[in-house]
Design a protein around this nucleic acid. Structure first.
Lengths: 182, 182
DNA sequence: AACAAATATATCAATATGATATATTGTAGA
DNA sequence: TCTACAATATATCATATTGATATATTTGTT
């Protein structure tokens, strides 16, 4: 077992907290994990089928409606798999910032264009930061309710720290670009 | 023109600075861009062929050896393409940190395991930071030699700022995990 | 001359994205 | 009650990319 499909691990991780549908898994990722991970439906649904196939998760239909929700739960086997993955060394931490890419090649278009990208980046960060601060406050209060909260808090504080650094950098970068000509 | 293949844009960006072989392109990415972007040979070589096919780059053989290097250069058409992409709004900035993922689900294995991942992360950052600081110093000195250096410096300083924030966070995170039990 | 390391190109199965199609459920307002 | 819209929910697929690997050449070292 080395270099597992990441999507399997994220899904099992989320299922280790609670039973979820594919749609809910996507929502969890787009809110709680969005600061350091993402995935598309195109990987989630096939992965769920595969996990059930391999006995790492179970699928059951909920309710008695026309079209039932498909609710997935982790199995003991799945939990073992997750636990093993958690102990393995991290394979890769990766940044994929298009903003930085456009900036690196910024000389081709000039300072005005670069400053504009930095401003957009800044706005996006400033918009998201309050949610992280809110989450931090809530998690700090409920730290004793659930031992898992400590781990959520850690990742939220990672977001807050890095976002703070981003905002500092934005200011300095704009200054550098606008001095002598712009 | 919207949502271009990123690999095309990175390659054209690098070729806008200088003529390069596929191998050299990969090396540039693994050194200069590694703090915010990466790509594999499996995307670089097919993309180069495609760029030539579309008239955005040219390919020529170098030297008179048995097996010649294939040197690629950007065309005017390619430069126009790059310039247009640079003005378009950023589509996506994305973090993909397996360390944070393992931390988020860390409750499943406990504090000791989580602390270990943080320490590994910390070591990796501490090892890379000196290179960034070295690059910063060099670029600051040669800022007047080439107008592009200002843009390189910007991305290097982004790396330095965020790495600083990471190290601060690592300390705090370890403290949080180790207090009352560990 | 022998050998290792770096240079260089290429391919491909496995993986993931981004877009889209489709249908249902909940709900707010007319 | 009807209706329209948003949210919920599952699914698929062409396209993009990775990670691994194969292969060969050139350069540097002993």
């Amino acid at each position: 077992m080395a270099n597992e499909k990441k999507i399997d691990c994220v899904i099992l991780g989320l299922l280790s907290h609670e039973e979820l549908t594919g749609y809910e898994i996507k929502k969890r990722m787009d809110t709680m994990l969005k600061y350091f991970w993402s995935a598309s439906y195109g990987s989630i649904y096939p992965a769920l089928s595969d996990l059930v196939h391999r006995g790492l998760a179970t699928k059951r239909e909920s309710g008695e409606n026309k079209r039932n929700k498909l609710i997935y739960a982790i199995t003991d086997h799945g939990r073992d798999y997750l636990k093993e993955w958690l102990t393995l060394p991290v394979y890769k931490d990766e940044l994929r910032y298009e903003t930085l890419l456009k900036l690196f090649f910024g000389n081709e278009q000039g300072a005005e264009c670069a400053v504009h990208h930095i401003e957009s980046f800044e706005e996006k960060i400033e918009k998201e930061l309050p949610y992280l601060l809110g989450a931090q406050e809530m998690l700090k209060k409920s730290l004793n309710d659930d031992t898992a909260h400590k781990y959520y808090l850690l990742t939220v504080e990672f977001g807050i720290k890095t976002y703070g650094a981003y905002l500092e950098w934005c200011k300095e970068a704009r200054t550098l670009l606008m001095e002598n000509g712009g």
